[in-house]
């Protein structure tokens, strides 16, 4: 299968100027990821799992290393790509799923979910139709589709967020605890959608508090516990 991501010597820490110190997150992480592969990150709290996802997404700036992403436009180093190139990749090829919805005032749930399709050039009508399908799939009540999610409960917001994040198939999907506090039906819908995307070739890197939720999807595990050598980190799930 084709390689999607090549991570080499990725190192991240935080310099806190007001304290005058440097906090290391992880050091010299290397791995490859192929299309359709699901990689689970493990390690105790503070091992840098979410930090690694955010560094790949470029919300965080790495200190060293190289992350080659084989985009549809050609290979590019995500650590050094220009901001506008990252914006383009985020719109078309790299998705990030968290448990939190970023709601906007006066934007309905269905419009929020349809937005990635609109940005990808689909007609308003087609995008809305697809958005409603996914809202239903994740168990958001129909009465709420036209309402503003700003006032929804945490659980309902999360479903809207998942529908939005997973509506457009991506080449690389970064998952930061998307199952936390989801009800049974929504969790089943999430796992089904991830399986479908995986089968279609989406490569995934995930952090899960309860990996059992996605047990059947996991191909490989990387342990971020500090102090391990790179060959000790990797584990293949049989």
């Amino acid at each position: 299968m084709t390689t999607v991501l090549e991570v080499q010597g990725l190192t991240k820490g935080f310099t806190m100027h007001h304290l005058g110190n440097h906090l290391a997150a992880f050091d010299q992480i290397s791995f490859d990821l192929r299309a359709g592969e699901f990689l689970l990150l493990k390690g105790q709290n503070g091992a840098g799992k979410s930090t690694l996802l955010r560094t790949l997404y470029r919300s965080y700036i790495a200190q060293a290393g190289q992350v080659i992403f084989h985009s549809n436009h050609g290979a590019i180093d995500l650590l050094r790509a220009a901001d506008v190139d990252i914006t383009l990749l985020r719109r078309e090829e790299i998705g990030f799923v968290t448990q939190f919805l970023v709601a906007r005032p006066r934007v309905s749930a269905e419009a929020l979910v349809a937005e990635p399709l609109r940005l990808a050039g689909q007609s308003a009508e087609a995008a809305l139709k697809e958005a409603r399908k996914w809202l239903a799939e994740f168990g958001v009540k129909e009465d709420l589709w036209r309402a503003y999610p700003t006032t929804f409960s945490g659980g309902e917001q999360q479903k809207v967020n998942l529908a939005r994040a997973l509506i457009l198939p991506q080449k690389l999907l970064l998952l930061d605890e998307p199952t936390a506090s989801l009800d049974v039906k929504a969790r089943a819908a999430l796992v089904a959608r991830l399986r479908e995307l995986k089968a279609a070739g989406t490569a995934m890197i995930g952090v899960f508090h309860h990996p059992d939720d996605v047990a059947q999807l996991i191909d490989r595990v990387i342990d971020l516990t500090p102090g391990l050598e790179n060959e000790e980190r990797e584990d293949v799930v049989v």
Partner: peptide
């Protein structure tokens, strides 16, 4: 050690 950002490559 710092990483320097490249010029745009993908945006035409």
């Amino acid at each position: 050690m710092t990483i320097t950002i490249d010029a745009p490559k993908l945006i035409k």
